[in-house]
Structures are given as C-alpha cells and as structure tokens.
Amino acid sequence: MKENILISLKNVIVEFEDGHRVLKGIDLDIHDEEFVTFLGPSGCGKTTTLRIIGGFAEPTEGDIFFDGVKINGVPPYKRNINTVFQRYALFPHLNVFDNVAFGLNVKKMDKKIIARKVKEMLALVNLSGFENRNINQLSGGQQQRVAIARALINEPKVLLLDEPLGALDLKLRKDMQTELMRIQKSLKITFIYVTHDQEEALTMSDRVVVMRDGQILQIGTPQDIYNEPVNAFVADFIGESNIIDGVMYEDYEVEFAGQAFKCVDKGFALNERVDVVIRPEDIIVGDYETSPISGVVESVVFKGVHYEITVDAHGYKWLIHSTQSQEVGALIGMNVKPSDIHIMKKMEVR
C-alpha cells in the first residue's frame, strides 16, 4: 500500500428516480496498491459505490477522482479500471482463451503478444491448459478464475470485485481468498472488494469500509474494526457480540446487568445511556457466587474450536464462546475484564 491517493469520492449521493437515496454522501479515499473491502448488509449501497467507481452508474451529486482527475461521466471503457462481476458474466459464446483475450482483441493488439499474455495470465490463475475449453464446461471456481484473468490481462490500476466468491462453497472460497491476496500482492494493484461476509473482509483487506443505509459507518484496518467498533451495529456485524443497555456512571465506570464495572472508556456525559458491547470469547466463566453476573445455561453447541453457550441472566441471553463445555441447566457465573468492555454511544434512531 502506497501513500498516494488513487481514487477519491467526495460527498457522492445517488438518488433513484423514485427519490430513494441509495448513497447518502460517501467520502472516501483509496490508496494506490491498497486492498479495500466494502462490507455491509445487502442494500447498504456497497455495490452501487463499486458501480460508480467502475463507471456503470453516475452519482446524482458529488465527484469522483481518479489519480487526481475528475472522472464523472467518463464511460467504463475509458477508465483504467476492470471488474470481476458477480456471477462472473463470462461470454458463453467464446472459449476460455477468447474470453481472457477479449480486452486485448478490442484494443487490436498483435495476435502473438495476445497469445503470450493469455498464457501468462492463465498461469497466474492456475488454469494453464484450459485455453480451448468452453465456458459451460468449467466448474464455478474455474469460471471465477477466468473472470479474474479476463479483467487482469488489461493491466488495470484498479480491480473491482463484486462479491466474487459468493457462489463458491466454503473450502473453495478459502482457497480463492488466499489466491486473490497473492495475486494482489504480486501485481501491486488496487483491489476494491465488495462483500457481506465479515470474515472474508477481515481476512483479506488492508482496510475495511463498513456501510449501512447508504452511509459509511467506519473505515479502518480489520484490527481497528474488530477491536474498536464505533457503534453496536458495526460490532454486531463484524462478529457476534453481546450488546447490553448500560449507563455511564462516571469516567471509567459503567453499570449494566445490575452491576457496576470498571472500564477503560471515558468522555461520556454523566449517567449517559450507552451500548455495552462484549465479545463472546471475552467472557470468563466462573463460580456463580463470586462472579458479578450469574445465569442459567440454556444451550451448549459444539462448534469445533469452541463451545457456543447461551446463558440466561435476568432475561438477557448471553452468548459465550468457551473451550470448556457446561451442563445445560447449570447455574454459572460470568465476569469481564475492564479492557474487554466496549462502550458505545447509542445509535441515533433513523
């Protein structure tokens, strides 16, 4: 990742004909050679943002800059950007070679050079020897690789990927994640990736942009987003969380679940109502008599690495990830370290 800004969105607003606002003012800078992921639930505007960068949609208001030059109204075929589409959008009437060679053929490049470049590109995506296959003879994973090769052969400065792994099974998706990261590092270009899968976003990205309702909620490294979510929505979306109503007594002291806890947050108003976010893996299970919170074990599910335990404490269902199993119906105690208590301002109700 370099320091210089490659793509810049300034107060981008997109409004549909019926007046519905899909994007409500997006400000975003994307650096050269960066791997950025737009993360959010469906309908949050992440694909629209991608289409604006690709040139397939135009902002109703606001500007978009590429390498410092305003590119509003520049059609896709004049942008040095290529896209890997959702469900690939390969050309069914062409074989693998002609699909990959398509962009270079349009540019009327020399046939010999095209043949060499296609060969290199297919090697990069591990599809050597597939030149003469028909598209419908390929598996989903192979089609995905063709789509990536077809885009990358044009040597774009930016590659846009719209939920490219959504149709693949879990194992294949993991493999492709690693492969995409390898390709991005080896080609040294900017990847802008759209997904609703938080795990995918955390694994692959240099920076994650969390979106909801056409707005950016938080931009940060995967670690920032996971450890310091700005609000309960981000916290919940980025990983399973316990979100409890609390009241800030004073700096470094918060009350929730009927108890006062030490915490590391400050700067809230006196007795301000807040959201308290606690990760399931941060809850320490202990003896019910000595722990601040106690409850009854409702269910225990084995998840491989850990047990997922639900505990009912005064009506709130706590989610715990623990390597130790518990008896269903048992009374247990729960405690949290001050540094694992995340205090967030209440989200404004829209």
Binding site: P76, Y77, Q86
Partner: peptide
C-alpha cells in the same frame, strides 16, 4: 445475463462494439 453487456464495456468496448 445483463452483466455481460457491462462486462464488454468494462473490457474496452464502446456500446456499439
């Protein structure tokens, strides 16, 4: 698949191409 038209634009075709 209506995206194949977009894909063609993306790969350097003008609308007629």
């Amino acid at each position: 698949d209506k995206h194949i038209y977009d894909a063609a634009l993306d790969l350097g075709c003008n609308p007629l191409q």
